[in-house]
Structures are given as C-alpha cells and as structure tokens.
Computed example of a mutant assay.
Amino acid sequence: MAGAAVAVGLLPNYAQIGIAAPILLVALRILQGFSAGGEWGGAALPAVEHAPAKHRGLFGSFPQMGVPAGMLLATVVLGITTATMSKEAFLGWAGAFRSC
C-alpha cells in the first residue's frame, strides 16, 4: 500500500504524459484498495484470535472502527482550524501546501 501511495505522489500529471496519467492513477488507486483490504484482514485476524473468548466481537470491532475514527478526528481538527483562523489566513495557509 505504501508503494502505491508513493507512486501516486510521484505520478506525472496529464500535461506531462497525457491520457496515461489518469489511467495510471486509477490503477494505483485500485492497488491501494486491494492492499487496504489485505491490511484490514491482517489486523482483524490477530485482534480476534488473541482476544478473550467473551470479548472477541469487541476486539474484532477495533480494526473496523479505524477509518471512521480517523474521519471523525480529521473533521474535528478541520473544525478547530477553521474556527480559530480567519478565512484569509486559512486560505493562505492551505494555499502554501498546494504549491508543494
């Protein structure tokens, strides 16, 4: 998954390689999806196998809650950021990352 993510970051844009850019991007995203599925199974299996018998369902739910927890955390951070910065400061700060 990390290799596909790095490849997405290094992928040339449409102006540089034409129609191959979106095709490669879709292929890399599919590869990331397969990798994420494998990683989830690799996380859920030991969580359930090593859990106490009465708590296997609870322990098995932890890998499943990773994505929603990350999305919730990102929403909270963005909410705090936008609430504490002016619109101009936020756009200037966010625009700095666009040029990277």
Rank of each mutant, 00 (worst) to 15 (best):
Q64A: 15
P68Q: 07
M71I: 09
V77F: 12
A96N: 14
W93G: 03
G95Y: 11
V8W: 04
T75P: 06
N13G: 15
A15T: 05
G9I: 08
G41F: 11
C100N: 15
V76Q: 07
A51D: 06
F97I: 07
I19S: 12
S35L: 10
I19C: 03
A43R: 09
L73W: 08
L10P: 06
A7D: 10
A36H: 08
G42Q: 04
H55S: 11
P52T: 00
Y14Q: 13
P46Q: 01
A2M: 10
S86V: 08
M71G: 06
E88I: 07
P52E: 13
A43L: 12
T81E: 08
F97D: 06
A36Y: 11
L11A: 07
M65D: 11
T84R: 12
P63Y: 00
I23P: 04
M71T: 05
A47I: 03
A43P: 03
K54Q: 14
F59P: 02
G9H: 04
Q64K: 14
I30E: 03
L58T: 12
F34R: 01
L31D: 04
A47E: 09
L72T: 08
E39T: 13
I80V: 15
F59R: 06
V8F: 05
E49T: 10
F59E: 06
G57F: 04
L45M: 09
G70P: 01
A36R: 11
L28G: 01
F90R: 00
R56N: 02
A20K: 14
E88S: 14
S35T: 13
G57K: 04
T84F: 11
I30G: 00
G3P: 04
S35F: 07
V48L: 01
G42C: 00
L78F: 14
S61N: 05
P46W: 02
G70H: 07
K54A: 14
E39N: 10
V76K: 00
T75A: 15
G38Y: 04
A27P: 03
A4H: 08
A21F: 00
A69W: 02
